[in-house]
Design a binder for these strands. Structure first.
Lengths: 333, 333
DNA sequence: CTGGCGTCAGAGAACGATCTCTGGCCCAAC
DNA sequence: GTTGGGCCAGAGATCGTTCTCTGACGCCAG
């Protein structure tokens, strides 16, 4: 049996389509008896408005795409995505908007832009740590608003929506925490230099160290992954064998770094204190548990959702919110 | 400027709506000159069919809901979901169907059933380890087909779509692997007794042990979580202090168990060999890395997608596929 | 008692793609 | 030369909801 339509409801309630629509839309200028009849009929039939018809008539889809790199979703890197995803989906859900999951990889090069033009979504939230190059331009050219979670590598228009955390402040927090623990022979395992957040973390770290009077702290670079963290730590140890504090600018790199330190006979934190960045789940499962600069990932997702919804509703909102980072003290520093 | 419609394309190409539609639908019985004009006009305008109109007219939504417990998404338990999610989304994407993410928790008790009735989706894939009780009945009563990934605790109709892995076979694999490693004093940390997959793992484990002539192996129960695994291991050690092999029926419980074993001075695997179940990411990051019975989670998601798509297309498919489990040998056994 | 205004229900149009049905044209065959 | 069949383009209807416009009724004031 087909799904009941508004006409069915109206027929049973003995009123016209328009009246039934008014009642179900919550308008008040309807006779109470009729309204009750409509409510009753709708409940009886289990009526629910057909979303396609509403969409077609109303012009709004009531849906937002979440563009994510699926190949990383179930990896360690993925814990970053899932936190943001969770926040974004919750935020959209609260706004009565459907989150549509779109795999950014596996793209045939045309489906995402086509999807953006199909009217099936009102906007998109992009959650990519490493952007897929062929996607950047289509996303920038998107006919619907896009919210970026984290600064992408590509330059964006000044009115672009970008949700980021305070990477600069996070870098300062890490430096101060190590200094407060009495460490003075410090090194940093930074992210790739072509990524804005990575540069900001370095800048915060350096500024704070400068204020503390600590100079010439060496920098090595990784790719935010566990293995690149191990490799970077090995290089750092070679350059600076007697260091007593390391800031790894992702938790995964911190994890890789700690393994290398332990393999090299250094105790963490007694010989070398280590601070990470992100506060993803691995930080609590490693041994020692990781002291880290927390990015409020779930909040970032939620703010992305709220911001794009506000933009769609024509509201005047901050299009570049920056969420504060904070230090989470655990065992490693 | 508004999105171009089929009428715009037809106007530029100098043909009627119907002809333009025919060309874009790939029908061949159209004059080549006209077809070329339509193709050209469509490309020039960046035309993409309005999905709402297509949906309304065609009756199909072209979307499948993925119902997931969001509170667990970024936790350790969540790695289970994300793998399935990834497979399901890939499978749907391959079938040209949009995956819509639906948070199962945070439900106000009515939105999910209403959504199922809104025509916005053609079906749903349910990925819940611990079902939300108030959702079970609405899901069972759903007007659209539902595919369950993993046996839920509630009884389902015989024609329900359930994608599961071979839990029984997995239990046998674990028993045999420990026996092959020369272990004879074995114990099992099982899942909750009211969950079918947990019972099946026990049954497989026992049958294999019986064939191997190992009797009276003790059973303790956990809740599939890390802490419950620790607690269960502590109970097991007290009951059976000289055991030399443990099968924990989830990787998280195995992780908790190993910590307790190590804290009790037992070396893993030399004193006690441990085998887990699932093969989620933690299995590769713990120390020692975990030998485990692999559930093909991503495949399960993909098969769920393929099965529900086949059902929607009226195909005759296996509605209860069981995917094989396999042993992944690492360091812990 | 009548005219005017306010309120509220219903009829109709619109959203945009798709599918059916009709009508016209061309070619071939009788 | 005329008729019939086949093929192809276009007009129209349809999906279900929402919004605007119209018309009717009732009430109040003149």
């Amino acid at each position: 049996m087909p799904r009941p339509t508004l006409v069915d409801v109206a027929k049973i309630a003995g009123v016209s389509r328009a009246t039934a629509a008014r009642v179900l839309a919550g308008e008040t200028n309807v006779d109470a008896t009729m309204a009750a009849a409509v409510e009753h009929a709708a409940k009886e039939l289990g009526y629910e408005a057909n979303s396609a018809a509403r969409m077609l008539r109303g012009g709004r889809a009531g849906a937002i795409a979440l563009i994510v790199a699926f190949n990383e979703l179930d990896s360690l890197t993925g814990t970053f995505f899932t936190s943001v995803l969770k926040g974004a989906a919750k935020g959209l859900y609260a706004g009565e908007v459907q989150p549509i999951l779109v795999p950014a990889d596996h793209d045939d090069g045309d489906r995402i832009p086509r999807f953006l033009r199909s009217g099936a979504i009102d906007g998109a939230i992009v959650i990519l740590q490493h952007e897929i190059t062929h996607l950047a331009q289509p996303l920038i050219d998107s006919p619907v608003p896009i919210a970026w979670v984290g600064q992408p590598r590509v330059p964006l228009a000044p009115d672009a929506i970008v949700i980021d955390s305070d990477n600069y402040g996070g870098g300062r927090l890490a430096a101060r925490a190590l200094a407060d623990a009495g460490r003075r022979r410090l090194g940093i395992i930074a992210g790739p230099n072509d990524m804005e957040p990575a540069r900001e973390r370095i800048r915060g770290w350096r500024d704070e160290l400068a204020e503390l009077g600590i100079d010439n702290s060496p920098i090595v670079h990784g790719e935010f992954t566990l293995v690149s963290g191990s490799a970077a730590m090995a290089r750092l140890l070679k350059r600076y064998p007697d260091l007593d504090g390391v800031f790894a600018s992702s938790d995964l790199m911190a994890s890789g770094a700690i393994r290398v330190l332990q393999a090299a006979g250094r105790q963490v934190p007694s010989d070398v204190a280590v601070i990470g960045f992100d506060d993803v789940s691995i930080a609590t499962t490693m041994d020692p548990t990781l002291t880290t600069v927390r990015q409020p990932l779930e909040d970032m997702g939620r703010v992305a959702a709220e911001t794009i919804l506000a933009v769609l509703r024509g509201g005047d909102v901050d299009r570049r919110p920056i969420l504060t980072t904070s230090l989470v003290r655990r065992e490693s520093a």
